[in-house]
Design a protein around this nucleic acid. Structure first.
Lengths: 331, 331
DNA sequence: CTGGTCAGTGTAACCGGTTACACCGCTGGT
DNA sequence: ACCAGCGGTGTAACCGGTTACACTGACCAG
């Protein structure tokens, strides 16, 4: 900037004002500065700007993984909302490791105005300890009540969704309904499993030997599907804790010559965009993923704008059952 | 930091040295500083650090969209590679608009050490004009030769992949092979279409009425599939310019009572992770998406480390045909 | 003619760190 | 006894912008 100022024969203050419309600049001067800036390919240094302005116009996002349809959707929702509020996104994958979350959070300090954190296993306490005191944070799908005022919590109604799916399958006459569980340490996964168990129990049915461990990947779904296909008392329905595992399970069941939904009915969770295009279209529990992102950004935007700590709230978004062909329900 | 220094009874220099191991600090002093820092929840301001150090340990990523399996995979590849090199990721979606690309690029200045840009329609020139002169940039899938020394180009062999797929379908005896084209302005899409046309022509076959416009989405694939199903001289095979459209097309064809691959053979492009789990598993052209990310980060890392402009290169990664069941080839 | 207003501009402090350099006191070799 | 070397520490300049404040000259109302 100093170079631009010198070459244009003005001071840095004038250049700054010219670029930000933050004060009167003579027409001639403005033109001269703009020409020189282009010539020198001057682009303001955002780090310096945010240092001085204390505003970065950037939101940080920390998610366990960048992989898969769910996070892709989430990121899209966040991106859209962020753009609408004129924010940029600084993204980090934490890969579930506490050290990496720590590093990711610390790397955000001073570079973001607010933070969206999805933390499967790490406590809110750990998050706070690695962040500057007054930074607004929205936690996605957190189990515990937030520890401080700056933490806001946004989750989805896992239990209601899982219960609805289980009841739906029960309503179709299924008795042996298997569950492909998600990553054990994950809160969402645990909730879905719990609701499945409770709903089955409420119907007087046992879940012994019907719960298969998984980790939310297609591969885990495939492996579970294979084991399931070989069972003596084969379940007549499968409720996967997410759509990716449902896809994997269907693939394995098909490979074993079983028809969906005739031989085995299948339901998923998340309702990823792809679900409706699968064959058969996948019955799933719709999660308003993009709304999750939109709400998170919204909350942060308000807190940042007002420069006031986030009033600690806990919001749970509803989930809805979306019936398609994979469960064998009549159209 | 000043507060920490005062409370610990030392100067800011000592606090800095303590945090970065950049100089000797007495054992007692170190303990005292660490205790105070934790108490005050002091986290160093990265913006200030990078301003002084001129290093940000962050790579910028500008992609047309954050949505879909392809970008999800790309982001994952970039994230993995970045982590391996101890870099963070600053992500922006450009949404194909020139203004947004401009804004995204300008927002990166001073916040990243290097940049990965995927620019479907915008010229390398536009990119350079909105970036500081010496910033290393890797262009993903760019058409033109880069304009400057700092621009590196990384692409995939679209033509070879599309030709291989077309030849494969021809080899299975198909004559009326339709093509679901990607976004018209997109370079990859154009290349795939061109190679398809040339391969068909080389086999003495016409492509009149066999090319359907699309935009890389499942929905576009579905719509094309519907039109295709209703055709009098229905194509016996479909080559979609990406897997998402293949999925959509399959869904539509199935909805019209057609069997895959018996009635219509289908091939895709990208080989997204899901492809193998579809029913039937999708024949596709494998694109080393994660390697794309890894290579890009690698190149940037070298240029940053050496603090020398990127020797302008143009690298094209090979693509390979992956035959699965959706094309009806014998196992 | 004078004082106030305002467009247009420059000077310098400041944001929050890093680091070159200076300084002090102690140890140990000669 | 003297000086080099080193551990431990402080001072202040610097990174690249923003902005409060001061200043100048033109214009205008009283």
């Amino acid at each position: 900037m100093y170079d631009v100022a010198r070459k244009a024969g003005v001071s840095v203050a004038t250049v700054s004002r010219c670029f930000n419309d933050s004060g009167p600049v003579g027409e001639q001067t403005r033109l001269r500065i703009e020409r020189v800036a282009e010539e020198l390919r001057f682009v303001p240094n955002r780090a310096a700007q945010s240092l001085r302005a204390v505003r970065t116009h950037t939101l940080g996002v920390v998610v366990p993984d960048l992989h898969g349809a769910f996070f892709s959707e989430l990121l899209r929702g966040l991106d859209q909302a962020a753009r609408a509020h004129r924010y940029h996104l600084l993204v980090a994958g934490s890969h579930g490791s506490k050290d990496e979350i720590r590093a990711a959070l610390r790397s955000m300090s001073g570079r973001v105005d607010g933070l969206v954190v999805m933390n499967p296993d790490v406590s809110a306490f750990t998050i706070e300890a690695n962040l500057p005191p007054r930074l607004p944070v929205v936690l996605l799908g957190e189990r515990d009540r937030p520890a401080s005022e700056n933490l806001d919590t946004l989750g989805i109604d896992n239990a209601a969704g899982a219960a609805a799916m289980t009841r739906h399958l029960l309503g179709l006459g299924h008795q042996r309904i298997a569950h492909l569980a998600g990553t054990a340490s994950n809160h969402d996964a645990a909730e879905r499993l719990r609701a499945y168990r409770e709903t089955m129990a409420a119907a007087g049915l046992s879940t012994d030997g019907l719960v298969f461990e998984g980790d939310f990947t297609e591969e885990a779904g495939y492996r579970a599907g294979e084991r399931l296909a070989g069972l003596d008392a084969r379940p007549t329905a499968v409720f996967a804790a997410n759509d990716a595992m449902a896809v994997g399970a269907i693939s394995a069941l098909r490979a074993h010559g079983l028809r969906i939904p005739n031989d085995v009915a299948v339901g998923g969770f998340d309702d990823i965009p792809l679900a409706r295009y699968l064959s058969p279209p996948l019955t799933s529990v719709h999660v308003p993923i993009d709304e999750l992102g939109a709400r998170a950004v919204e909350r942060l935007g308000v807190a940042i704008e007002a420069d006031t700590p986030l009033p600690s709230r806990q919001v749970t978004l509803p989930t809805t059952l979306v019936v398609r062909a994979s469960c064998g329900a009549p159209a």
